[in-house]
């Protein structure tokens, strides 16, 4: 239990997906104009990443390993993730329309979010077992959500500021992300896991 907790803490703060590993930077920069949409994206990613960590681990352990097909893991994982996202979209549309109307538009974008594939591959690379994989997927996604919501909050304020002209738009946003990343470097002093 203690290991799982340490792993989760490390995935959220120390090895934050955005600020330390750079997984999922496209949605981080693309869908962070408003805090509410950022939160919606974060929740959709959390949902998909938890489920996909479980699914890809199972596929790897029981399908690819026994047949010696490890080299196919990139293709297999991306197909599992794409199928899963499609399935989740249909499931939510049919059974939980309220959730679908808030998360629906983000779901197709998640297939090409490298955070999801990155988490799946990291699970295998680090040799996590099933519980650790699910915990890692869930907490890494929480770290992603936290990062994107903080960043969206800062960006909402940035719109009122007037930076030098060449810095307008993306450059100043990236600079802010750099400053937040610097703040997160403070966590790297904590060696727990």
């Amino acid at each position: 239990m203690k290991e799982i907790f340490l792993l989760m803490f490390s995935a959220i703060f120390i090895e934050n997906f955005i600020f330390a590993r750079f997984y999922g930077c496209c949605p981080f920069l693309g869908v962070s104009e408003k805090p509410d949409t950022a939160l919606g994206m974060g929740m959709a990613v959390t949902f998909v990443m938890t489920v996909s960590s479980a699914a890809t681990w199972t596929v790897y352990e029981y399908l690819l390993l026994p047949f010696g097909l490890q080299y196919l893991k990139t293709i297999a994982f991306i197909l599992v993730i794409a199928g899963l996202v499609q399935f989740i979209e249909m499931f939510l549309k049919k059974f939980v329309p309220a959730l679908y109307s808030s998360l629906g538009i983000f779901l197709p974008l998640i297939t090409t979010n490298c955070a999801v594939l990155g988490a799946a591959l990291t699970n295998i690379q680090n040799g996590y077992n099933f519980a650790e994989s699910v915990a890692f997927g869930f907490s890494a996604a929480l770290g992603f959500t936290m990062a994107i919501v903080i960043f969206a909050g800062v960006r909402a304020r940035l719109r009122l500021a007037s930076p030098p002209k060449p810095f307008k738009g993306m450059p100043i946003a990236l600079l802010t992300a750099g400053l937040i990343a610097m703040a997160f470097m403070g966590f790297s002093g904590m060696r727990i896991a």
Partner: peptide, 14 residues
């Protein structure tokens, strides 16, 4: 380090 990546890219883009 990661923070430097964001800052360098921001400056180059500007």
């Amino acid at each position: 380090m990661p923070a430097g990546a964001f800052i360098t890219l921001a400056c180059l883009m500007a």
